[in-house]
């Protein structure tokens, strides 16, 4: 595991010297709501009254049915969408847009098809003030981290779905963000690739100490990965219940405690 001091040196300027004080949540979501104007007047409420505090280095999953607003919530934390009310703060600073330490991994097909894998990762360094060579070297380093240095010059369409998502993860890590926001990143992958990438993600999360917010449809996936699982309900999107997982990693999918918690979440989800 890398020592914290080393990582702190590589943090972007905005966060330097701003380590959160103990007990102050790292990501603080307070009374966030989001609504869209409805057809024929009125408004559709997608999220209402979301309060959630996430600690530094915590791995939190957002689980819920389609339409519960989990992707919207992720976009709001990412600064890609504005909330209709309430606020999100990262390390005490209100989120006003992207680039405040959030790295985002999207569902699928979010790689730029005209850029080779290494240049897709390099896109993340666009505004980092690096020379072309430095950019390439850093990008290769990140590709190595996700085990894809051999595919550096391949275009996305020449890569399998699993490889594409590895590149996406490498790209999201480009600016060494403190927060990794992941929007169903493994949802379209086959079961085996999915398990492989879950392990890979845990390895990266443990090696680089990130705070992860992970949106998924899969209770199983949430249980394998997360410290806490936030169950959202729809119409309007709201937090129904939060589950502490509290099992040692690596977790066994067949352990009784695993299955018991699965059962709990399933019951809550389907009730």
């Amino acid at each position: 595991m890398a020592p914290r001091a080393h990582l702190a040196l590589r943090r972007p300027e905005w966060s330097r010297g701003e380590h959160p004080v103990v007990n102050v949540p790292f990501i603080e979501i307070s009374s966030v709501r989001k609504s869209f104007p409805a057809r024929g007047g009125g408004a559709v409420s997608v999220l209402s009254g979301i309060d959630l505090a996430i600690a530094e280095n915590e791995f939190v999953s957002l689980v819920g049915r389609s339409g519960c607003g989990k992707t919207t919530l992720l976009n709001i934390i990412a600064g890609l969408e504005a909330a209709s009310g309430g606020s999100v703060a990262i390390a005490g600073r209100p989120v006003t847009g992207p680039g405040q330490g959030q790295g985002v991994v999207f569902q699928q097909h979010a790689l730029f098809p005209w850029l080779a894998a290494v240049d897709n990762v390099g896109f993340g360094f666009r505004n980092a003030g690096l020379s072309k060579r430095q950019r390439r070297a850093r990008s290769m380093e990140l590709l190595r981290l996700v085990g894809l240095q051999a595919a550096a010059t391949k275009y996305p369409r020449e890569l399998s779905g699993g490889m594409q998502q590895r590149v996406s993860i490498a790209r999201a890590l480009a600016l060494d963000p403190q927060i990794l926001l992941m929007d169903e990143p493994f949802g379209a992958l086959d079961e085996l690739t999915r398990i492989e990438l879950q392990q890979e993600l845990l390895r990266i999360w443990q090696a680089r100490r990130k705070t992860v917010v992970f949106v998924t449809h899969s209770i199983n996936e949430a249980l394998i990965l997360s410290d806490r699982i936030v169950l959202l309900a729809a119409n309007p999107g709201r937090i129904k219940r939060i589950f502490e997982v509290g099992m040692e990693r690596p977790r066994s999918r067949t352990a009784p405690s695993f299955n018991a918690l699965y059962e709990d979440i399933w019951n809550e989800l389907s009730s």
């Binding site: 959030q102 979010a110 790689l111 666009r126 505004n127 999201a172």
Partner: peptide, 28 residues
């Protein structure tokens, strides 16, 4: 593809830079 736009925006790329680096090649 709006996904590509969102991906670029997540790196703070916007405006003319977004058009030049993402919209244009995507439209080719």
């Amino acid at each position: 593809d709006p996904m590509l736009i969102r991906a670029a925006r997540s790196f703070g790329v916007a405006g003319i830079e977004l058009y030049r680096t993402v919209v244009l090649p995507a439209a080719l």
